[in-house]
């Protein structure tokens, strides 16, 4: 069963498709066009160790690059 928190995380994550994303404890902290940008946004929220990763737009599965 999907919880409200999981659903919100999924919704927020999908808004970041095509960008770099910073997350922390299954919460989307920030997204932006560079690692530096999301790192700075996370630091503004006092998140010291965000998980930062590239998130491409995926609409047909991951069978392409």
């Amino acid at each position: 069963m999907t919880t409200t928190k999981e659903r919100r995380f999924a919704e927020e994550l999908l808004k970041c498709a095509g960008k770099y994303v910073a997350t922390h404890n299954d919460t989307v902290i920030a997204c932006g066009s560079s690692i530096r940008e999301v790192k700075e946004k996370a630091a503004e929220q006092n998140i010291k160790r965000p998980v930062i990763f590239p998130l491409p737009k995926v609409t047909e599965g991951h069978n392409f690059f």
Binding site: L14, A17, R49, V51, L55, V58, T59, E60, G61, H62
Partner: peptide, 28 residues
């Protein structure tokens, strides 16, 4: 969740850390 097409798309996206010399580990 890794994307959305006709419905949500799920995949094996896992967290790991990159360990570089003289740097804090980079979670990604």
């Amino acid at each position: 969740i890794i994307g959305h097409g006709s419905g949500p798309i799920y995949g094996p996206l896992v967290e790991f850390e990159i360990i570089a010399p003289l740097q804090d580990p980079f979670p990604t």
